[in-house]
Write a protein that binds this DNA or RNA. Sequence first.
DNA 1: TCAAAAGTGTTTCGGGTACACCCATGG
DNA 2: CCATGGGTGTACCCGAAACACTTTTGA
Lengths: 245, 245
Amino acid sequence: MYLLHLLNFKEYFMKFAKDQQNRWYENKEKILVAVDCIIFGFDNQTLKLLVFKREIEPLKGLWSLIGSFVRPNENANQAVLRILKDLTGLENIFMEELRAYTDVNRDPGARCISIAQYALIRIDKENEELVNKHGAYWFSIDTLPKLVLDHDTMVQDALEKLRDKAQRTPIGFELLPKYFTIPQIQTLYEQIFQKEIDTRNFRKKLLSLNFLKKTDMKDKSSSKKGAYLYEFDYDKHHDQDFLIK
Amino acid sequence: MYLLHLLNFKEYFMKFAKDQQNRWYENKEKILVAVDCIIFGFDNQTLKLLVFKREIEPLKGLWSLIGSFVRPNENANQAVLRILKDLTGLENIFMEELRAYTDVNRDPGARCISIAQYALIRIDKENEELVNKHGAYWFSIDTLPKLVLDHDTMVQDALEKLRDKAQRTPIGFELLPKYFTIPQIQTLYEQIFQKEIDTRNFRKKLLSLNFLKKTDMKDKSSSKKGAYLYEFDYDKHHDQDFLIK
DNA sequence: TCAAAAGTGTTTCGGGTACACCCATGG
DNA sequence: CCATGGGTGTACCCGAAACACTTTTGA
């Protein structure tokens, strides 16, 4: 039987599938499959979540995550990227699966499972306008409105995963502009973990990881002295340990 | 608009859904949704995976994970528990979602997404016989056969997740009998991480966590001196840190 | 000149790791 | 009596955490 593994699997499969696929796949109930996006953003002040205000019935006026049904010719990942592109104009956004929400009655309108995904983007003027045009708004994560269905749970789960991930990998950089200051990163981490971090220890640890390139530019937008701008040095980051608590 | 949140949501929804659900849900393609189970087991020697040998066409003779389509009246979790119950007779099995596999062509027989879940069970004679009756067999994880579709990927992903999880939470106990010895746990961890662990450090760390209750029984099945049997003390385990590398 | 944020070093403490020998027992 | 696996203690090292003052500059 091990020989079979060497055969062209797809060909072999199709040979039988044509005759027999009804036996295997028949009478199996298909289900609506959606993706919902937990989109985090950072405006150099607070961590925010992008939510969508429904302006048509049903559920007019309620807040909701942005989602879509998965189409026949795309996988879940592609569905999310499609949404993000439409909504923000951005491509190459960091995103990762959170988990699937499959309860039978989670959506009273129809049996529908959702594969929730979270994404991280930088908030800037261009995408903020575009986003507003689509009826979406940024909410600070500590003043979120009630969301429809199980979307509140999704957001909480996503926050937990984000914290977990941020501790072990330099995830924050997806949320920062190309050039950023150390105090900016620190604010971001303080927002993610919702607690204050010691300046000296944070800076020491961060710089010791050796993946920040210092520039000779300064950002004076938040102090008179000005803070040096850094950029992420992708060459030097090789998934080393990155424990920041 | 905030007042709306206080209304009975489901009632409100249904009022519109009846008229309008076609507008929202119509023409949305439904998809087959399966669960696949990555079932790990431990027989006090090696970490094993339960795989299923297809004895009917299509794919006769090929090895595969155990799976099933999700039925209209169950969520993914319930589907997995149903499979595990049928297959092993066991209930209350530890299981957790791995992730969803949604590529358009992952299953050449039909568009079908799979929500992969991994589970941990102890292997004993009773469930081993039952399992064999269903055409399923335990394979040591370092001598796995080639599996169909994307199941190899699922197994690798599950192993990674298992390792990650085992490092930060005392997960191994799902895989051990009620009473077990310290050398047994160590073997389990050596299997999971595929490397040798220092006896003294392991024992020291494990006991310092204070959730093992020593009994006065000894297991002499693997040495003349015999090793003390312990049991898991659920009261004392409060999700403390549990870093074992 | 002063307010406000940026930037910098040292000490302490705990946990991780490395490492080698004695113990108990059945055959 | 000896082979086999069970069980124990110490020293070192490194990274995390705690902690306070100087620098710069625009207003």
